[in-house]
């Protein structure tokens, strides 16, 4: 089943098929969780990093990656978690941020300033609760359209 000319680029491609369990519109590569893919002979080594140390999805990342590799016919693999270099929301590309916004999540901004409402795109918004539905999000309220929304905290 495993193609003999397996290469790292192909594995990176598979990793883009693994969605973030909490924000499925973005995948683990876009989220910056997948840090390296190493091929050691036929053995695959995936280096990942946690987003928030208290993220309850940490173990789920490993499980989802493992499932994907097995699905692709890889049985000899290891998923290793490393904190260095430290994950930051700065790693989210503009494209990824646009995806978040489209999905109704206001993307992280520098110093958590100028926060856009994903519904009506107004910046006239206020913090409703510093802590939201996941450790990485806060709850905001739009003063224009009056809708509440999630904001991806900057880290």
């Amino acid at each position: 089943m495993v193609s003999t000319n397996l290469n790292e680029k192909e594995i990176w491609g598979w990793m883009t098929e693994v969605p973030d369990p909490e924000i499925p519109i973005i995948n683990l590569v876009e989220l910056g969780v997948i840090r390296a893919v190493n091929l050691k002979g036929n053995a695959v080594e995936i280096i990942i990093t946690p987003t928030y140390t208290g993220c309850p999805a940490k173990q789920l990342f490993v499980d989802l990656i493992s499932e994907k590799l097995v699905e692709k016919g890889i049985n000899d693999f290891e998923v290793i978690s490393r904190i260095h270099p430290v994950w930051t929301t700065d790693w989210l590309s503009e494209e990824t941020k646009a995806k978040l916004l489209k999905d109704g999540i206001s993307p992280p901004t520098v110093h958590n300033k100028k926060i856009i409402c994903p519904h009506c795109k107004s910046y006239n918004t206020v913090l409703a609760s510093q802590f939201g539905s996941t450790p990485c999000q806060s709850l905001y309220k739009c003063l224009e359209c009056l809708e509440p929304f999630n904001y991806f905290k900057c880290l």
Partner: peptide, 20 residues
């Protein structure tokens, strides 16, 4: 409710640090 969510999240942070 907001405090409930806040304190639970702060607890998760503590567990996360502790685990690492």
């Amino acid at each position: 409710l907001e405090e409930d969510i806040a304190l639970s999240n702060l607890g998760l942070d503590c567990f996360g640090r502790g685990e690492e």
